[in-house]
Design a protein around this nucleic acid. Structure first.
Lengths: 195, 195
DNA sequence: TCAGGGTCTGACCGATCGGTCAGGCATGCT
DNA sequence: AGCATGCCTGACCGATCGGTCAGACCCTGA
């Protein structure tokens, strides 16, 4: 195990991920992160422009995958959209469990930051697809319950291996989602809310 | 509409509830609450010992109902426990939407406060009942997804009337929960986690 | 040998946080 | 009139926050 290059950048990133998971973004100070890494707070701010940039770099891979799922969903309707949305989101959630745990709870405030400007709309479209683009309250409610619940489950069940968690969630999603009979084209609704 | 007594206490409570819902407990300062009420920060701290006491009084009714549901669940097993848990929690979640929205996200940290010491164990038992006291990962996962998802849905769909939200959630819960075939007695497992 | 760039740090900044405290100001009882 | 009580406030406190900055340290290439 050669440790030629210290890779402080990566260590800060990893420490921040751990701390954010436990105490949340707001609840974790740059001092806390520096202490865990074993460097000064100034060093953290040398490697990252500010606290928000740290979070953005931490979430970047997950957001990229979410964005590609959104592309995949574009144009699909009805049951096909439901299946792709369910499968895609379960995969994503299981894979990026830690990132989801980081965002957990501070979602509403964090979404207001410019780095996460788009993911509210993406998750709205994802929810819409999972509801089969239906306007029925039952379908919309089921879709939200599923997305939120799956996120929470992935953040909480850190001890369950991916291969066990993924099929369980997918089965649940397929059972819980309201089936759509006739696939009718429907523009995705993006309900913006003031931030 | 006579306004003989100003009832500052109640106004502070109501303002705090609104602010906590939007910006979270941590994200809301006593100054923010005082500003909305139209009094000084010192007045807020005259009516409430500290910020935590304000939150505790805000959550008290919801916690009381949760506790009584826990009593109701005590001794029930199998499908009976599942049905009572589902119905009881949906009722509770719909009724105390705002309180749930307040807690949303800051759950893990807030549970460490003495005022909320017991509700982690209660929610563990509730989840266990909803899973039909089964050890199967699928059942445990489904129960968690449901509890977390229902909470989130209630916090988010503030515009949907109770009478519409409640049956939709209950139908979803019954469809999503894993049916238990043979009701077997099983002691509730309380998995404590370090805070 | 020296210059320069990358890395890191302690000291410091203004802002804001939750909370304390002495005192002002009504009201009502004696 | 005098006094006690309840309600409220401005001024202030120590702690902590995210962020800045000048300079120390080390390595490397000329």
């Amino acid at each position: 195990m050669v440790r030629a290059v210290p890779d402080t950048h990566g260590e800060i990133l990893a420490a921040a991920a751990r701390q954010f998971t436990v105490t949340g973004y707001r609840g974790t100070s740059l001092q806390d992160i520096a202490r865990e890494v074993g460097c000064s707070k100034a060093t953290v701010l040398y490697h990252f422009a500010n606290k928000e940039a740290l979070l953005a770099e931490l979430m970047a891979p997950a957001i990229e995958v979410l964005r590609s799922l959104d592309d995949q969903l574009n144009g699909l309707t009805g049951a096909a959209a439901q299946e792709v949305a369910a499968q895609g989101f379960v995969d994503l959630a299981v894979r990026f469990r830690q990132e989801i745990a980081v965002l957990r709870g501070e979602f509403p405030e964090l979404l207001c930051q410019p780095a996460f400007a788009h993911i509210q709309q993406i998750s709205d479209r994802l929810r819409d697809a999972l509801a089969g683009h239906s306007d029925r309250p039952g379908a919309r409610i089921a879709a939200l319950v599923l997305l939120a619940g799956i996120s929470e489950a992935c953040a909480e069940f850190v001890d369950i291996p991916d291969d066990e968690l993924r099929p369980a969630l997918l089965t649940l999603a397929r059972r819980a989602v309201e089936p759509v009979d006739a696939p009718l084209p429907h523009p995705p609704t993006t309900e913006d809310k003031d931030c």
